[in-house]
Amino acid sequence: MSNSILYLLTVLIWGSTWIAINYQLGDVAPEASVSYRFLLAAIILFVFVKVKHLPMLFSLKQHALFAAFGVCLFGMNYLLLYNAQQHINSALSCIAFSTLMLMNIINAKVFFKTHITKQVYFGGAFGLFGIVTLFWPQLTDVHLGTATFLGLGLCLLGTFSASMGNMLSIKNQKNHIPIVQANAWGMLYGAIFTSLAVVVQGKQFTFSFEPAYLTSLVYLSLFGSVIAFGCYLSLMTRIGSHKTSYANIIFPAIAVLISTVVEGFAWSEYTVIGLSFVLLGNIVVLTKTETLQRLFSFKQAAKV
């Protein structure tokens, strides 16, 4: 697939997963639902690997990387974010998670000496400003206190865990490990980790056979995990983690657009301004530097 298709699939799928996640909340412990999600996703990938006769034998060192990758991206990340939302509203957690792009920029420079252009910084700043503006009405209801700082701290730790998972995925691909096999093992280890978290916290492995729960579980496993993570992690090797992670800024905007159609979300001036800046940041980050330079030169010449 082209980079554009991979990016589009990522933001469209993750922009719609919030609907499915709503159907996961209820009688089943969130940690158990996360475990079911990634276990089913791992099974789907293992079946695919078996059908395609792809190699699955890896060294203990490689499995250690798979385990670290899975725990960071498919385990700890989700556990911390779910716990964070018990203390803060979804708007604040969404903004905190949008800092993933900044964390990926720093980590890519530290671990892989990745050169970051000015347009990525500018685009990221536009995007973050857009997200803050988009959710500003909800932010005005936030009351600073111990619970808020605890939730924000957990959310930032979860985001950092996701960033480290991103870096481990890049390392796996640089070591020529196919992304399908790496994701299969990573999601299995992530499911095991979240299962252990359920046991340690003394929660129960209940299950719901309600159609809404089952349908959302399949959607989150197949589309939200197998396909979206496959697209997202493939893009990181192609265009860099700093550019790919802008998807985490734009998919909340996609969620707002979907909510407009599905739930009749009412737009305000904050919605228009926020979405405009998110879109502008997306254009700045993903447009080739040469194209932006030519466009800017053309505007300057037109003024003269």
Rank of each mutant, 00 (worst) to 15 (best):
L6M: 15
V11R: 04
W14K: 05
G15S: 12
S16V: 10
A20P: 01
Q24F: 09
Q24A: 08
A32W: 03
I43V: 15
K50D: 10
K50W: 07
K50Q: 05
M56W: 10
L57C: 13
L57D: 14
F58C: 06
Q62L: 00
Q62D: 06
A64P: 07
A68G: 12
G70P: 10
V71K: 07
F74P: 12
F74E: 08
Y78P: 00
N83H: 08
Q85G: 12
A91F: 05
A91N: 06
F97W: 14
L100G: 06
M103S: 10
F112K: 09
T114A: 15
K118E: 02
V120P: 00
G124M: 05
I131F: 08
I131C: 09
T133P: 04
F135Y: 15
T148M: 14
G151H: 09
L157G: 00
S163N: 05
M164R: 07
L168F: 13
I170Y: 01
K171E: 07
N172Y: 00
N172V: 01
K174Y: 02
H176G: 03
A191E: 03
I192A: 09
F193K: 05
V198H: 07
F205K: 11
T206P: 08
F207A: 14
F209I: 04
L220F: 02
V226W: 02
G230L: 11
S241W: 01
S241E: 00
T244M: 02
V262L: 00
E269T: 10
T271H: 09
T271I: 05
L275V: 13
L275Q: 12
E290L: 12
S297M: 15
